[in-house]
């Protein structure tokens, strides 16, 4: 169950790691729950990350390879670490 305290603690814990540029927690529907980034950037990340998670889940389902546990998007400037859970998606930018 997600609580305000859990969200606060998780964001603080993840943000304290070296190299972490931002943390976003979004609902599975793409609505941001909490973030350390600007509202514009948060909205964008939440929308696109939920979209990519949906697609990845469909692929995994089609291939019959089990459950999606983790997703990494490695780009030249930043890296997105995506942890999809049942009720929310945790995103770390580094």
């Amino acid at each position: 169950m997600i609580s305000q305290k859990w969200i606060k603690d998780t964001i603080e814990r993840l943000s304290s790691h070296k190299g972490v540029k931002g943390v976003v927690i979004t609902s599975a529907e793409g609505i941001p729950l909490s973030s350390t980034l600007s509202s514009d950037e948060t909205e964008k990340i939440a929308a696109f990350v939920t979209s990519i998670v949906d697609k990845a889940k469909k692929i995994i389902n089609e291939l019959g390879t089990g459950k999606l546990n983790f997703l990494t998007v490695d780009a030249s400037k930043k890296e997105l670490l995506i942890a999809p859970e049942k009720d929310y998606i945790l995103v770390v930018l580094r």
Binding site: T26, S27, E29, G30, I31, E43, A47, F48, T50, D54
Partner: peptide
């Protein structure tokens, strides 16, 4: 079941 965040952004 649409992605609300994506619809809002678009």
């Amino acid at each position: 079941d649409v992605n609300i965040g994506m619809v809002r952004l678009l």
